[in-house]
């Protein structure tokens, strides 16, 4: 980690977010309830290097989107820091914040909600230009909008239309054009393809990859779709209940997943060679994030559980190229795709 400092664009250190989910004050006093908190994210560390794609994967409720919001500054973290190119977003003064904002953009999940339905496309794409370069004349701005539209594979004449005149995939392209409008370095993509048809997904992903090579963009890619991750990511972090259980380079994660949860995710993903394959259905449900299990959060579902797992929260440890949070990782059997995992310890 230390030797990569110079190339790191994003450093996330001990990031955590706690939401107050207590009932209203009066109800709480009357029912003598304590305050209740939901830990959506807890001590998450990762580094994204310039020009690479880091993917965060996890089930719904694992805190993916919360991390995205904290990373772009839409939500202040409860603990920890987000450092973008050496500047802490929350500590920065207004001027620094404005400069940082320009360098971070976001692509949203739902292309139907991410474009203001009452705005024309040129207004939507031109807004970041207006916000960051107010000195630019109207004509130059519309020229920029036309360039951006063509860059994402739409036509410059689309500028005078409204969002409802476009399909989901086209809208997502408009969302990408808006994200590019402020000439950012880092783009946070919050499940950018999960609302699209599979055929359109590939087009949008290809576009995003082309733009990455063309403009040297850095992506934080948030998704639950492992096939998308395999296609896009250079490095992957696996989230479970708000904590990173494993982070590794993409190749090593898919070939030699370490954490039992990562293995379970890979087993659960549909595959082309999976016909007739013996399949182990994932055991259990993701637990309630308000009352999380003791020790390792995954231990109630883990086939390799030991008594220690229920007591002690595992720390990140290096295992090959991966960082894994598991007590037993050294003693786990070697992963073979499609293997049926028998519980080593019955409980």
């Amino acid at each position: 980690m230390v030797q990569n400092m110079s190339r790191a664009l994003v450093e996330v250190q001990g990031l955590g977010k706690r939401f107050d989910v207590s009932s209203p004050w009066l109800n709480r006093v009357l029912a003598r309830e304590p305050k209740r908190y939901l830990s959506a994210v807890e001590s998450v560390d990762f580094v994204i290097e310039k020009g690479t794609t880091f993917a965060l994967v996890g089930e719904s409720g694992s805190g993916k989107s919360t991390i995205a919001k904290m990373l772009v500054g839409l939500m202040p973290p409860s603990t920890g820091r987000v450092v973008i190119d050496g500047v802490d977003l929350m500590q920065a003064d207004a001027l620094e914040q404005n400069q940082l904002r320009r360098r971070i953009q976001m692509i949203f999940q739902d292309p139907y909600a991410s474009l203001n339905p009452r705005w024309r496309i040129d207004e939507i794409i031109g807004e970041p230009v207006l916000a960051f370069e107010p000195e630019i004349s109207r004509r130059d701005r519309s020229r920029r909008v036309a360039e951006l539209l063509e860059q994402v594979g739409l036509s410059a004449t689309d500028a005078h239309r409204y969002p409802h005149e476009f399909s989901g995939g086209q809208r997502q392209r408009i969302g990408i054009a808006r994200a590019l409008a402020s000439k950012p370095e880092l783009i946070v993509c919050d499940e950018p393809t999960s609302a699209l048809d599979v055929s359109v997904q590939a087009q949008v992903l290809n576009l995003m990859r082309d733009l990455q090579t063309e403009l040297g963009l850095t992506y934080l890619f948030i998704t639950h779709d492992l096939s998308v991750v395999r296609y896009m990511a250079d490095a992957i972090g696996v989230l479970y209940l708000g904590s990173l259980v494993e982070s590794a380079p993409a190749s090593s994660l898919f070939d030699t997943p370490q954490h039992p949860y990562t293995r379970m995710l890979l087993e659960a993903a549909p595959r082309l060679d999976g016909f007739g394959r013996q399949h182990q259905p994932p055991a259990g449900e993701i637990p309630d994030p308000i009352n999380r299990p003791s020790g390792c959060f995954y231990h109630p579902r883990c086939p390799f559980v030991t008594p220690k797992c229920a007591q002690e929260q595992p720390l990140q440890r290096s295992m090959g190229q991966a960082q894994v949070a598991c007590h037993e990782v050294e003693r786990l059997p070697v992963y073979h795709p499609g293997q049926v995992i028998e519980p080593s310890v019955s409980n």
């Binding site: 500054g73 839409l74 949203f108 009452r118 808006r178």
Partner: peptide
Amino acid sequence: NKDYVQAARLIGRPRHVILRKHLLPN
């Protein structure tokens, strides 16, 4: 709560602009 408002907040648009230009027409 819709993403287009988040997008406007993201680029640091002042609150009165978000209220007048984004939310009011909708």
